[in-house]
Design a protein around this nucleic acid. Structure first.
Lengths: 239, 239
DNA sequence: TAACTGACTGATCGAACGGTCAGTACCGTA
DNA sequence: TACGGTACTGACCGTTCGATCAGTCAGTTA
């Protein structure tokens, strides 16, 4: 590909102008193309599996140009992760602070939001999911960890709030429940995107239907109405 | 390290002799050391991040020796995954066929089994979790996929059985529920093993306590007793 | 003793990797 | 016209990768 028609025009992050919520930092059009190509590549494969040459080829620039815009491969990866993590925990925190909604409603909205964001931007979701699992790459972990910690803390707070308001039972650890919901969303997303791992699963077609199922199950359980409460002998009170 | 004291003695899989359930195939002591080292390495990092030199060093053999026992790096990886997947779906299938247990009991035992196996062999769990997420490596996927499909099918069948017996409500998609439970287990495991991602989470310390929480939540929900059934307007009947 | 087999090694291969560098083209400013 | 700065390139560097090779050694068989 030719060196582009009009060089050096510092547009305001091509991706940001259409999504509206990402990348306030001004980057050149060339750097933008590199970041986009890198995000796509790192979402599809692990850090070591992606080569600078691949990214350069995909971005339509030469290899050396990548090192002109970014200090190293790790720095590029870090920048990609920084953009992916932007504005992720705000929703849960705002929801927690909302005085008008019931905890049940908050929980439903949270689950719906989780599924919408997860399925709404598959590339970003894959990026973050991969980062969570890949314990080998500590550089990115330092970036993703606080994001997830903030989000997780808000969700736990939301559940605890519901327990204090007597909307939820107190015999469930909020942290474990938060991980249940998060894990369910991740699993359903991963299955959908791995095109065929568990292909043919009925309910996984519609993300919002899944979200609804998760919400109703967490709230009401699956025990047939009228049956005795589940194994009271094994109940464990949370202090 | 020296070339080992007594060469060429085809022992019956050192790991198998103590665990009792794995690797009926006879492999030489040298190959065994390579497989163990490779399993540990592939559990810690992605396929491309692990080098043959690393594995050789860890196994105490030279690089070329690995290619004497295994055709290629991919073949070695495939063999590692084959051992890791061995005997994974049998429990769920046996549980499904059991005529003596109630569906509620079956569900509890299944969740307990999931957590026990997941937390009981961290190396194997990491191996499989990584494989599920890493869509780039299709060679192993062909191996893991049927394993998970079998297990998943059995779990779905178990839930459907409970619905037919009127032990579970019929307004929940068994497939989505199965993924909920699996996702919860994975999330809790991953959090535990990533030493610090969500460190300080109360309930994640004891796997069996988590299993119990998941079971009770799935069965009974978290809605305070006496409250109205969860959002009946959004109920969706499964045909 | 001789022939054969399998386990194992050091040396080495070409390819691909991340990264560097001198040089070119284009810009706004003076 | 000259200059400094930015974007960008092809050629190249040293290293590491997976894989190959000829050859050594120990044990088994004839």
């Amino acid at each position: 590909m030719t060196p582009t028609s009009s060089p050096s025009e510092p547009v305001q992050s091509a991706a940001a102008s259409e999504s509206g919520a990402t990348a306030p930092i001004v980057v050149s059009a060339g750097a933008r193309a590199i970041l986009d190509a890198a995000a796509a590549a790192f979402a599809k494969a692990s850090f070591d599996s992606v080569s600078i040459a691949d990214i350069a080829s995909q971005a339509g620039v030469c290899k050396a140009n990548i090192f002109h815009h970014f200090k190293s491969k790790e720095a590029l990866y870090l920048e990609v992760m920084r953009e992916a993590c932007k504005g992720h925990a705000e929703f849960a925190e705002a929801l927690l602070a909302d005085p008008t909604l019931s905890s049940v409603d908050k929980l439903r909205r949270l689950i719906e939001y989780d599924f919408r964001t997860l399925f709404g931007n598959e590339e970003r979701s894959h990026l973050i999911l991969r980062e969570i699992l890949d314990t080998g790459c500590r550089t990115g972990r330092t970036l993703v960890e606080p994001v997830f910690l903030r989000n997780f803390t808000a969700v736990v707070g939301l559940i605890r709030q519901g327990q204090q308001r007597a909307e939820f039972t107190t015999d469930v650890d909020p942290a474990v429940l938060a991980m249940m919901v998060g894990g369910a969303a991740m699993m359903l997303f991963q299955n959908r995107c791995s095109d065929g791992l568990l292909a043919g699963v009925d309910g996984s077609a519609d993300p919002m239907a899944c979200a609804n199922t998760v919400f109703r199950t967490v709230l009401g359980g699956i025990a047939a109405r009228g049956s005795s409460p589940a194994t009271p002998s094994r109940l464990r009170e949370i202090p």
